[in-house]
Computed example of a mutant assay.
Amino acid sequence: MYLDQAASSFPKPPEVVEAMTKALTEYAANPGRSGHRMAVKANEVISQAREQLADFFGFAYPDRVCFTSNATSALNQGIKGFRFQSGDHVLTTSYEHNSVRRPLENMKEKSGIEITYFDSGVTEDFDMDAFEKEVTPQTKMIVVSHGSNLTGKITPIKEIGKLAKERGITFLVDAAQTAGVLPISMENMNIDLLAFPGHKGLLGPQGTGVLIVGKGVDLEPLQQGGTGSQSESIQQPEVYPEYLESGTLNTPGIAGLLAGLETVKRLSLEAIHRHEQLLISKLIDGLRSIDYVTIYGPSSNRLGVVPFTIEGIDGQEIAIILDQHYDIAVRAGLHCTPIGHESIGTSECGAVRISVGPYNTEEEIEQVLTALQEIVEGYFG
């Protein structure tokens, strides 16, 4: 039983496997580099993926949908590629993944920016008034995770986007946990930069990611190289998407991502989120009935993610027992978000995280609850 969906979705839809196989066996040429039919077909699939992603995320410029190797690469490009000056301020939250925190801290060390990590609390409430008070005249960027990979807490990105637009601040959203789960419209939510992976909620393969760059956002590419266009120039072409896409793209991966996106649209965001909420509600109710268990995160309005601890039992040991004795895959530790663990009070021991997806079932939730009850009984009698 796979209950580690927040790390990577599994299983993949058959359509994803079929699309990747077709790419590898029928048109595995270099897109945008040659004029023969295989290269043209590869480029057509990639262009189709750009168009569908732009439409799915409420964005009018498919050419500014830039493919990366993962969400981390997309976030690094959005943060490190931003033209910060010494003394500029970035406002973010305590629930950010290390894919946000580490690039920001690197920019602080190298470029002299200032960073505020706003603690948004452990409940579903988000204090917009307190958040707005952290904005300064030097604030040049707001970076937030749409949904916490630790607690499932959902951030009100529409309200934050409105604030950012009113203040003339660039707004970067990390949608690693919400792309393919919650509705996102860059236009309606005033999002300037949107970063997400292909292998989580969008049900695509690992090794795929996207950074959508809004009109008017000025980034510096983190790498330069072959783009298949303007080869006579010694400078990186400034036209999108080539400006941020040096080197050969992952055509089979992007074909798989496109198939995953089409599956998500067929299932519908509403149905996916409703199903995950059903499973999480059942899981939380069951965990509350087990002695020595502490659950963290909002009581409602959360993603399909639940962290918990069992008093007196190391989280890694729980995960190993679930894996080796029950064939249940979960994740224990700090989940690449150490400040988030500080916020919920688990920074010393970490937590066990169960996360669900569209293909998990109520029967699986019942089985993991039975397993955890047996673990507690085995330890405490």
Results as ranks from 00 to 15, higher is better:
A23K: 03
E26D: 08
A29W: 02
G32E: 04
S34L: 13
H36M: 08
A39D: 05
V40H: 05
K41Q: 10
V45W: 09
R50S: 05
A54N: 06
F56D: 05
A60C: 01
N70H: 11
A71Y: 06
S73P: 01
A74S: 05
G78A: 14
F84G: 11
V90T: 05
S94V: 08
S99G: 10
G112F: 15
I113R: 12
I115F: 07
T116E: 06
G121M: 09
Q138N: 15
M141N: 02
I142M: 13
V143M: 09
T155V: 14
K158I: 03
K162D: 02
G168A: 14
D174Y: 11
A195W: 02
P197F: 01
D218V: 09
L222Y: 00
Q224W: 02
G225Q: 00
E232K: 15
Y243L: 12
L244N: 05
L244C: 05
L249A: 07
T251I: 12
G260T: 14
L261F: 07
R266Q: 08
S268P: 02
H273S: 11
Q277M: 08
Q277V: 10
L278R: 04
S281I: 00
I284H: 10
I295T: 12
G297Y: 07
V306I: 13
E311Y: 14
Q316T: 11
E317Q: 13
I318R: 08
I320N: 15
Y326I: 12
T337L: 07
S343Q: 10
I344L: 03
T346Y: 11
S347V: 10
C349H: 14
V352H: 07
R353P: 06
I354Q: 07
S355V: 04
V356T: 15
N360V: 10
E364A: 04
Q367R: 14
L369A: 04
L372W: 05
V376F: 09
V376Y: 12
V376I: 08
